[in-house]
Simulated assay, not measured.
Amino acid sequence: MRDGLNPQKKDALVACTYNHRVIMVVYIPEFRGYYAKMFEVFKLSIESLIKTLPKTSAITLVDNSSCEEVKNYQIELHKAGKIESLILLADNIGKIDAQIGAARMSREPLITLTDCDILFDIDWVQETIKVFNTIPKTGSVAPYPSRRSLTYATFSVQEAILKRKYKLEFKPIPENFENYNMFLESINWQKEINQNALWPILNVGNVKAVVGSDHQVLTLRRDILFNTVPFEPSYIKVGNHSEENYVDLPIDVFGFFRLSLNKYKAFHMGNSPEAWMYDKLNHLSYKSESLILKLDVNMKYPRSKNRLQFQLRKKLIKELFKFYVPKAYKN
Rank of each mutant, 00 (worst) to 15 (best):
M1T: 11
P7A: 11
Q8F: 12
Q8I: 08
D11A: 13
L13M: 11
L13Y: 14
V14D: 07
C16N: 14
I23E: 05
V26P: 02
R32H: 12
F39N: 14
I46H: 08
P54Y: 05
T56W: 06
S57Q: 08
T60F: 06
D63Q: 08
E68S: 14
E69V: 05
K71M: 08
I75R: 15
L77P: 14
H78R: 15
G81M: 03
S85I: 02
S85T: 10
L86C: 09
I87V: 11
L89R: 03
A90I: 07
I93K: 13
Q99T: 09
L113W: 02
C116A: 15
T128G: 03
N133S: 11
N133F: 05
S140Q: 06
V141M: 11
P145R: 07
R147P: 01
R147G: 05
L150Y: 05
T154S: 12
S156I: 03
E159G: 05
E159C: 04
E169G: 02
K171I: 09
E178R: 09
N179H: 00
Y180L: 13
L184P: 01
I187E: 03
N188D: 13
N188L: 11
W189E: 12
N194M: 02
Q195A: 13
L198P: 07
L202C: 08
V207M: 07
V207A: 12
A209C: 02
A209F: 00
A209N: 06
H215K: 02
Q216R: 12
Q216G: 08
F231L: 15
G239C: 01
N245D: 10
D248W: 01
G255K: 05
F257I: 02
R258P: 00
K265M: 09
F267V: 12
M269F: 03
S272Q: 12
L284I: 05
K287L: 04
S290T: 11
S290A: 15
L291Q: 08
I292P: 00
N298C: 09
K305N: 08
N306Y: 05
L308T: 04
K314R: 15
K315E: 10
I317M: 07
K318S: 13
F321S: 04
V325G: 07
K327G: 15
N331W: 00
